[in-house]
Amino acid sequence: MDTTLRITEIFHSLQGEANTVGLPTVFVRLTGCPLRCVYCDTAYAFTGGQKTTLSTILAQVAAYQCRHVTVTGGEPLAQPACLDLLRHLADQGYHVSLETSGALDVSGVDPRIVKVMDLKTPSSGELDKNLYSNIAHLTPQDQVKFVIGDDGDYQWSKAIMAEHALAERCQLLFSPIAGQQNPTELAEKILRDRLPVRFQIQLHKLLWNDAQGK
C-alpha cells in the first residue's frame, strides 16, 4: 500500500457519460497523457498533480460513501500503478470504470473493471495511436467510445464497427464534439443508419458547462 500515483484531483459528481450517466460517482483523475487530441477538455491534467499514496487515495474515495468510481485522466494507464489502484478499488467492492484512450495496452486491467475505451477518430489528430489489439480484450460489460467531429469521423466509425464486429463484442458510444458536431444531426444519422450505438451528450457540460462536472 506504499505505492504512489500522481493525482490531479479526486472529486464527487454525476457521471457525465457512458452507460452509467447520471449516477453519483467519485472520479480519480490521474496526471499525464501521451496523446494530444485536438478536442481534449482536460489538458490541465497533462502535467503537475501530486504524488499520493494508494492508501490515501482509497481513504479519500471512501470518504464520499459512493458506490461508483471512475478512474480517468489524462491517460490513467500511462502510470503502471493504475493497475494496482483499479484492483484495490474492486477488492473494496466498488463498481469501477476506467476511461482510457485506447492507445495503451488494456490486457492487464482487472476483469472486474469496466473499460470505457476510445477509438480515436480522424479529426482527433491521434488516429495513428489506436492500439487495435486492445479490441480482443473487450467484453460485453466494456464500452468503446467514438468522439465524432464531422461526417468523416462518422463514416470512419461505422467502418471500424463493421470491420471489427464491435457491436457483437461490447457496447458502443457515439459522442458529438461540443461546438463542432451538431448533436441533432448526429442523432438523425444514427437513426437513419439503424446503428446499434448509444448516443450521448456530456451531461456535466449541460449542467455545469465544464469538463469535470463538479
Rank of each mutant, 00 (worst) to 15 (best):
Trp156Asn: 05
Leu30Lys: 01
Gly102Val: 04
Ala59Gly: 07
Leu83Gly: 08
Ala187Met: 13
Leu83Cys: 09
Tyr94Met: 05
Gln171Leu: 10
Ser97Met: 11
Ser175His: 04
His88Ile: 03
Pro24Arg: 03
Pro122Met: 01
Asn134Cys: 08
Asn209Glu: 14
Lys214Ile: 13
Asn209Lys: 01
Val96Lys: 01
Thr52Lys: 06
Gln143Gly: 01
Gly93Phe: 08
Ala81Gln: 06
Ser175Val: 00
Val26Ser: 09
Ser107Val: 01
Ser97Ala: 13
Tyr64Lys: 00
Asp151Glu: 14
Gln65Ser: 09
Leu173Ile: 10
Gly152Glu: 14
Pro34Ile: 02
Asp84Gly: 01
Ser133Asn: 06
Gln15Tyr: 11
Phe11Gln: 08
Val69His: 02
Pro24Gln: 08
Gly73Met: 03
Lys205His: 08
Val96Pro: 03
Gln212Lys: 13
Val96Thr: 11
Asp150Val: 01
Lys145Gly: 12
Arg112Phe: 09
Gln155Ala: 10
Gln155Gly: 01
Ala62Ile: 01
Glu17Gln: 13
Ala167Thr: 00
Gly74Phe: 04
Gly213His: 03
Val26Ala: 09
Arg198Pro: 07
Cys170Asn: 03
Ala45Phe: 07
Leu206Tyr: 08
Asp153Ser: 10
Ala63Trp: 01
Pro176Trp: 00
Ala78Ser: 11
Pro140Ile: 06
Asp110Arg: 10
Gln180Gly: 02
Glu185Val: 07
Ala159Pro: 10
Glu126Ile: 02
His68Asn: 09
Cys66Met: 07
Ile177Ala: 00
Gly149Asn: 04
Arg169Val: 11
Gln60Lys: 03
Asp128Leu: 02
Leu186Val: 00
Val197Trp: 07
Gln202Asn: 08
Ala187Lys: 05
Asp2Leu: 11
Gln79His: 04
Val21Ala: 15
Thr70Gly: 14
Gly74Asp: 04
Trp156His: 10
Thr121Pro: 14
Asp151Trp: 14
Gly74Leu: 00
Leu207Ser: 10
Ser157Met: 05
Arg29Thr: 09
Ile57His: 00
Thr184Ser: 09
Phe27Ser: 08
Met117Gln: 09
Gly125Pro: 12
Ser13Asn: 11
Leu98Ser: 08
Arg192Ala: 14
Glu185Met: 06
Gly149Ala: 12
Thr52Glu: 03
Glu17His: 05
Ser13Ala: 15
Ile160Tyr: 00
Leu85Lys: 04
Val38Leu: 14
Asp128Gln: 13
Gln79Met: 07
Gln60Glu: 15
Ser133Ile: 02
Glu9Gly: 06
Gln141Asp: 15
Thr25Ser: 14
Leu166Gln: 05
Met1Gly: 12
Leu207Phe: 12
Ala43Tyr: 13
Leu138Asp: 12
Val147Cys: 13
Ile7Val: 15
Phe46Trp: 15
Gln65Gly: 11
Asp210Thr: 06
